[in-house]
């Protein structure tokens, strides 16, 4: 049972990262088709910009849990790397608790914002109007998973400050 939950959970985290990658592929295709259509005189799709803008948001949201899981978020681990024993454990625990606290705030506040936007019918004005709640629809899932990931670092022996792969970046 636990194994199944664990498999599903990991599937969710990696699945979201895969969706993030596909969203980028989709947005490239969309931009190219839009330019081609415009250049050939068929006009442009008014929704292109708004769609790509939302994709950028969801790309960030869907890759975040995967990055926390794989220690991919950039951080300065000089202080922690030079510590050991109890002080290090305490500092790590405090950092995980901070991560849990801010993720929970984002989780609950985004739900509030969404329900209010739905109740009052707010719109997000872009190249085409989008329902406002869609801006925050990815937040509960992302920040829920981030909360769980920080929680896992907190209660298990895994450390966020294990080996990191610094070979890739800007």
């Amino acid at each position: 049972m636990l194994a199944i939950i664990s498999r599903l959970y990991h599937g969710l985290i990696f699945g979201l990262a895969a969706i993030a990658a596909l969203l980028i592929v989709f947005s490239i295709a969309l931009v190219v088709l839009n330019v081609a259509s415009r250049a050939l005189g068929y006009g442009s799709f008014q929704a292109t910009i708004a769609t790509v803008e939302y994709i950028l948001l969801y790309f960030a949201l869907f890759s975040a849990p995967y990055l926390l899981h794989t220690r991919g978020h950039v951080m300065v681990d000089m202080a922690i790397a030079n510590m050991s024993g109890l002080p290090r454990q305490i500092l790590e625990a405090l950092i995980y608790l901070l991560g849990i606290a801010v993720s929970l705030i984002f989780l609950f506040v985004s739900i509030e914002i969404m329900s209010e936007a739905i109740a009052r019918g707010h719109f997000d004005q872009r190249s085409v109007d989008m329902p406002y709640w869609l801006l925050h629809a990815g937040y509960p899932l992302t920040f829920g998973l981030l909360t769980i990931e920080f929680g896992r670092y907190l209660v298990t022996r895994r450390s966020l400050y294990g080996s990191t792969d610094a070979n890739e970046g800007l």
Binding site: G43, S44, Q46, T48, I49, Q125, S127, D129
Partner: peptide
């Protein structure tokens, strides 16, 4: 003619047979 248009201008541009183009 391709006209850069946001929400405020789109109706008039379409009414005048222009092609609205969405660019930032």
């Amino acid at each position: 003619l391709s006209m850069r248009s946001t929400g405020a201008y789109r109706p008039i541009i379409e009414a005048l047979n222009g092609s609205p183009v969405a660019i930032p």
